[in-house]
Simulated scan of single mutants.
Amino acid sequence: RNHVNIRHRKSRLQAFWGLLKEDWFHVMLRQKTIYSVLVLLGAWTISVLVFAGVYMFVDQAYLGTDCGLGGEAGIQFGAAFAFSLETCTTVGYGLPGSTNAFFENCGAIQLVIYFQMVWSMMYNAFLFAFFFARISRSELRGSQVVFGNKCVIRRSPLHNNRWILQIRIHDVDAKFPVVESHVRIYIKRKQTSELIPLRIQSPDDELGAVLWTSWPSIVTHEIDLYSPLFPPSAAVGRDKNLLGTGGILLRQADSVSGSREEIVCPTCGETYGDWERLRHHIAYTQIVETNDDYPVEGTHRSLTVEDYVEPPVPSQDEIEKNFPHEILVLIEGIDPLASGTFQALQSYTREDVVYGGTFKSVMAQNENNHIVYMEDFHHIEVSVV
């Protein structure tokens, strides 16, 4: 759930260093917390050790001058490390002596202290930003979006008795609704490496396929003639009198609703949204042409109205044989608390499909509340296809 297993042929170490050079912050941000803490702690410790070495070098340059660090013999590593640690953590100077001579006699040490303090402030600010970004990331918010364990493929009277694919989705954190959540569906076939998108009927993808995930929702894709789930064997000859797609993924519902035309009259080239309108056109034009004594050949009088009907829908066996290797459902939205974008993923294979079923209703209402019965969320009522 919520991640896709993708591996690259390039070695992981080579890819890691390549990304680290280009985008080190996000590479670090994506590592496990324990790894990030160890790396950042190691970098901080190394900086303390480096400045300890600088203090030893500068103190040696001031031999014979009381710099307040190590006396005439010069500061040793232990004392230099303690002084560097005190400077980095700003806990106050108590070691290695009680004098403030390094503020009075040795200007170079003051300069080193200045640079270490600047480095310390910047590193502390980075740590705060890093851990805030790490803690407040919204990607885990997707685990609260629940998908049905099974998807449904059935014939729907509302879709001219065509086959439809349905998936149920709900966000269990209904108190803080996801902002601008929308859904996408892809299929993956075993013989290709391409993800093919599916058009979505409900919620309408032309309006952004926006969902209110706080309410249990059913996402619907119609398996029409343009759907990648439509069996190629059943599509043979069905594109007769249809306009070409031009490489665009279309929906039959758009032509039925009048948003576009797809069926061409073979005689005059007029286009219509569905077969019924084409039949009305042929029948009316035949009356006009007969009345005007048009010849039969090359006119609408040569057409038989009954030949122009919508082809029958494919059988369940044809739908099953054409089912892809995998269906991927992607929910994307904004977490209202952290204002971060997250994604929730669900995968369905052949074993996850129920044919002829409908999702059981999970909603009820009392005087003050709407109630979601999550114990029935995955339940599907099966009927004869």
Rank of each mutant, 00 (worst) to 15 (best):
L195V: 05
L229G: 08
S214M: 09
E180Q: 14
E194T: 12
P232R: 10
T213L: 15
I218M: 03
D171F: 14
P231M: 01
N241G: 02
S193Q: 09
W215E: 02
P203K: 10
I187Y: 01
I196K: 08
I169M: 03
I187M: 05
A253R: 15
K240E: 03
L249W: 04
L207Y: 13
H221W: 00
S217H: 11
S233I: 11
V219Q: 00
W212C: 07
N241P: 02
L195F: 14
N241E: 02
V256Q: 01
G258N: 04
G244F: 03
L250Y: 06
S233A: 09
E206G: 05
K240P: 00
S257V: 10
Q252E: 15
P177G: 02
D173T: 13
E222M: 12
I200L: 06
R184F: 04
S259N: 09
P228V: 03
I248S: 08
S233M: 07
Q201H: 14
D224G: 06
F230W: 07
L225W: 10
S255W: 13
G244E: 01
S259Y: 11
H182D: 04
F230T: 05
Q252N: 08
D239N: 12
A209Y: 08
D254R: 15
I185C: 10
A253W: 14
E206N: 14
L242D: 01
Y226T: 06
E222H: 03
P197Y: 09
